[in-house]
Simulated scan of single mutants.
Amino acid sequence: MSNPLRSLLEEPRPPDPPVRVWRDWVLLAGVTVVGVLEGVLREDLPLRGLSVALALGLAPLLLWRRTHPLAVVATAFGVTAVVDIVLVASGAPALDMNTMVYLLVLPYSLFRWGSGREAVAGLAIILVPATLSLVVSWTGVADAIGGVAVLLSAFALGWAVRSEHGARERRLEQVKSEERALLARELHDTVAHHVSAIAVQAQAGQALAPTSPSSPLEALAVIEEEASRTLAEMRAMVRVLRNEAPVDYAPQPGVADLGRLAGASPAGPRVDVSVSGDLAALPAAIDAAVFRIAQEAVTNALRHARNATLIDVRVAGDQSTVSLVVRDDGDPGAADPGDEAGFGLTGMAERALLLGGACRAGPCPGRGWAVSATLPRQVSA
């Protein structure tokens, strides 16, 4: 067996899409209207009643083409093959209803949503009525080649869309994994800091015990607090760590470093940074996340906010949460980041979610684009 065929057969079926989507209902309504109009208005339509009944009777299969592509293909092309055989055997004219062209959506759906084995089985099923149709309705080599090309185009389009969708899903998962790994490295830095503090306090307590009886108790209180923080950070780190890459021990930027983002560039909008509220003693993971999300949002705005003059970064803290809003004043609809920056949005949302918060992005009322994030002051264990 050739490698391409083996790969196709072994390929698993992608996750099931929603049972029905509004586009399928619109497609069904359009096919129904066109079929009725052709049945009423077309004067040279052979076997008018049977043609209209077959076209409209098979049309509801479009609603299941995403979840049961092989069953839909087998039903539609099996019925048409049986009808063609009966008509040929009885000497009746072949069906020639233009509305039936919607059946080309089914081969597309087979290769778009079916598994590899379903695609091979469905291809074999489709070849029977397709070959029979060529024989019964032979109009020349050129028409035969054109018909085969159209059918193959439906297969190829379904396969291409499936491959593109799969590549994007894999890229999104890669971005999420990279964000988890980066967050885990930052959490590692925090744990190392806490463990160092515990060691220092323990040494200090031992050294001062002979001269100050209360020193060990004070040291134990600090050690208890540091140990509790360390335990929470370690649990979070274990939850998000996804690879075994070497840990980067470089200090991580935080809220205090947001001023790096401020300023005006020669060819871009000015970046203003405003920090308010209680932002003292933030956990390192939250502190770093605020900077990372703000940095990514500013980068996206600089790249995609058309005709923007200002990017406003506002960070505020209270007793329980830290909020971040990055807003630009670019042209309406012009700051949509598209696929490439969309991966950055995925990373920001993943980082916020892993820390127990949320991150959203979308157009502002009037003009511009905004990224808003809310993070808890404490890392959830």
Rank of each mutant, 00 (worst) to 15 (best):
A288G: 10
V72D: 00
E169C: 10
A199K: 08
I126H: 02
L61M: 15
A284W: 01
L54I: 13
H304D: 04
A308M: 00
R6S: 14
A207Q: 09
V273D: 02
A361D: 05
A256R: 14
S153N: 15
A264Q: 13
R168Y: 12
P14W: 06
D189W: 03
I125M: 12
R351K: 13
I311V: 09
V191T: 07
E233Q: 13
V326T: 01
I198Y: 01
A74P: 02
D257T: 07
L104T: 11
V21Q: 13
V128Q: 08
V275G: 03
S212K: 09
L70H: 01
L70A: 01
Y108N: 10
V88A: 14
R377L: 07
D278T: 11
P107Q: 08
F343Y: 14
P93V: 12
T190Q: 09
G158A: 07
F291T: 03
A89K: 13
S215I: 02
A156I: 15
P269F: 00
Y249C: 11
A142H: 13
R168G: 04
A341W: 08
A81C: 12
F77A: 02
T374W: 06
C364L: 14
T139A: 15
P107D: 07
L95K: 01
W369T: 03
A284L: 13
R23V: 14
D278P: 04
G366P: 11
V175P: 02
L54G: 04
R6T: 15
V120N: 05
R229H: 07
S212G: 10
P210F: 08
K176D: 11
L345E: 09
V222K: 02
P246C: 12
G57Q: 13
V150P: 00
L354Y: 06
M348C: 06
L231N: 12
V135N: 08
V371W: 03
A221N: 02
A280M: 09
G39T: 03
D278F: 11
M237Y: 04
F291L: 14
E226C: 00
P376H: 08
I223A: 00
A71W: 01
G205M: 00
G205Y: 00
P253M: 07
V290M: 11
L217H: 14
Q319E: 14
